Simulated assay, not measured.
Amino acid sequence: MPEAQPRNVIERFFNNVYKVLEGPTVWVRENIVEPNQKQYPWYHEKMRRVPTVDECYTDDVACYFEANCQYKRDRLVDTEIINILRQRFEECNMYEQPDHIERCAPIRKDYEEASTNWFTKYGDLGAYHNVRSAYMKQKHRMIWERRHGPVGSGMKKQEEEE
């Protein structure tokens, strides 16, 4: 769309002042700032995945350290996901009163499933845990399920094993 022609001298004067002030700013932005910015598709830097603790050798301290940092980042992300789901559920409850039980049921189901999965992975590890203790928890859970069936289903009877 072509620019409208200024109607009088005053309007032309202010248009020229505007171009003088905006021109260098736009040039710096387009030619210096934008070409030198790192382009990420998200607001945060996408970190590369590192080998997990089960892929590290027992004496490889650097691999263990990287796996532990990756575990901590994953835990923070999973915790934030739980917080977002909880916030959505609470906001749905406030907004949908008094029919919140029916209308917020899918959100509640998603939140409860995510929190159950979070607790399965990170729960009961204590305040000072690391990737090795989480890995051992996973290993012990898998051994339990192999011997006794899924957790929460009760223990297998002696007849079922034979």
Rank of each mutant, 00 (worst) to 15 (best):
W118V: 00
N36I: 13
E112P: 00
K139Q: 12
W42L: 13
E22N: 10
F119R: 00
C69H: 08
L21M: 03
P35T: 11
E80V: 12
H129S: 15
K137Y: 03
R49H: 11
C63Q: 12
V26F: 00
E159R: 08
R108V: 03
E11C: 01
N31R: 08
K121G: 00
E3A: 07
G154Q: 07
W27T: 13
H148G: 01
C69E: 15
E30T: 08
D74F: 03
Q5H: 01
H140L: 07
P35G: 11
S115P: 00
R48Q: 11
S133L: 11
P98T: 00
D124V: 00
V53I: 15
Q158V: 09
R86E: 15
N16A: 14
N83V: 12
C92G: 05
K137S: 04
K19T: 11
S115E: 04
T58N: 14
H100R: 10
A4F: 04
K38P: 04
P106N: 04
G149P: 00
N15W: 06
D54Y: 09
R86N: 15
N15Y: 05
Y111C: 02
R103Q: 03
N83C: 10
F89W: 09
H148D: 12
G154T: 08
H44I: 12
F119L: 01
E159P: 01
Q70P: 01
R48A: 13
D74P: 00
T25R: 08
I84V: 13
T58A: 14
K121N: 05
Q138G: 05
Q37A: 05
K38A: 10
A105Y: 08
R141I: 06
N93K: 12
R108K: 15
P2R: 02
T120D: 13
R7G: 06
P35W: 12
Q5W: 04
R86S: 14
W42G: 08
R108N: 12
N68P: 09
T79F: 15
C56M: 13
I10H: 05
Y95I: 06
V53N: 07
V17H: 01
M94E: 14
T52W: 14
N36W: 10
L125H: 04
G154A: 06
P2L: 05
E22R: 07
N93S: 08
R12P: 01
N16E: 13
F89I: 03
Y122V: 02
R108F: 11
E55L: 07
D124H: 02
I107R: 04
D74M: 06
E159H: 05
P24V: 01
E55H: 04
A62R: 12
Q70W: 03
M47H: 09
S153R: 07
Q70I: 04
V50Y: 09
R88A: 10
G152C: 03
P150S: 09
V9G: 00
V61C: 06
H148P: 00
R48W: 03
L125V: 05
V77D: 14
E162T: 06
A105R: 12
K109E: 15
E45T: 10
E22Y: 09
R146E: 14
Q39K: 14
I10E: 05
Y57E: 15
N83K: 15
R132N: 15
P24T: 02
Y135F: 12
D110R: 05
K19Q: 12
R147T: 10
N68Q: 11
N8M: 04
